[in-house]
């Protein structure tokens, strides 16, 4: 706020505004010039006159660019051994559904057994959706999917404290195409063990 006001005041000081009075109904250029600098009610926008900042935009202030930190890199894990049932990490869903289908029971039973035998292990369930529907609704739907997996795992005896749920909604599609096949790939929960 203070910064904006500083800009506005600087802009006001740097900007003079003059009213050109075209008076009569004849197109004569009898331009009486009225200087309204002191009482100006209109100032050119985007006059953020702070020379030290690369000022752009029209709302009286500049824009600073920030670079976000990336996520921690995922490492390899013995749990990723393709010979182990624990390497299977995907649960797929029907459209707009968060019901875990029966075919994923063996997969989740294997993970539940591992988690029960390794009480220090933690698993993250990442819910994803296809691109149809609003982004925020899909974020919520992905959350329901991840919680549906959590529910199955806890019913199989896993401690709630070992399970984290997160949703990426439609934002991290595995297949970016707009086809039924891509949608089916993207309606998915992924399982990830902490430290991977």
């Amino acid at each position: 706020m203070n910064r904006l006001w500083k800009y506005s005041l600087a802009a006001l000081a740097a900007t003079t505004m003059v009213v050109l009075t075209g008076c009569s109904s004849t197109p004569e250029a009898t331009t009486k010039v009225e200087d309204r600098t002191a009482t100006t009610s209109i100032v050119a926008p985007n006059t953020g006159s702070d020379a030290s900042t690369s000022g752009v935009g029209t709302a009286g202030s500049s824009i600073a660019t920030v670079t976000a930190g990336g996520p921690a890199g995922a490492g390899n894990s013995a749990l990723r051994d393709p010979k182990s049932p624990l390497s299977r990490r995907e649960i797929f869903y029907d459209y707009d559904s968060f019901i875990v289908k029966d075919e994923y029971k063996p997969l989740l039973e294997a993970h539940a057994a591992y988690l029960k035998n390794n009480r220090n292990a933690r698993i993250k369930v990442e819910g994803n959706t296809d691109e149809r529907g609003s982004r925020e609704y899909n974020l919520a739907l992905g959350q329901k999917r991840s919680e549906s997996v959590k529910r199955v795992l806890t019913l199989l005896g896993v401690s709630e404290s070992q399970i984290d749920t997160v949703s990426f909604g439609e934002e991290k599609p595995r297949n970016p195409a707009s086809s039924e096949a891509a949608y089916a790939e993207n309606r998915r929960c992924d399982l990830a063990y902490s430290g991977e």
């Binding site: 505004m17 009213v19 075209g22």
Partner: peptide, 19 residues
């Protein structure tokens, strides 16, 4: 054949588009 409004601004060149 009448003027509806007439104004003049003194601005820095970087503010030309905004003006």
């Amino acid at each position: 054949q009448t003027q509806l409004v007439g104004l003049s601004f003194n601005v820095a060149s970087k503010d030309l588009r905004a003006t």
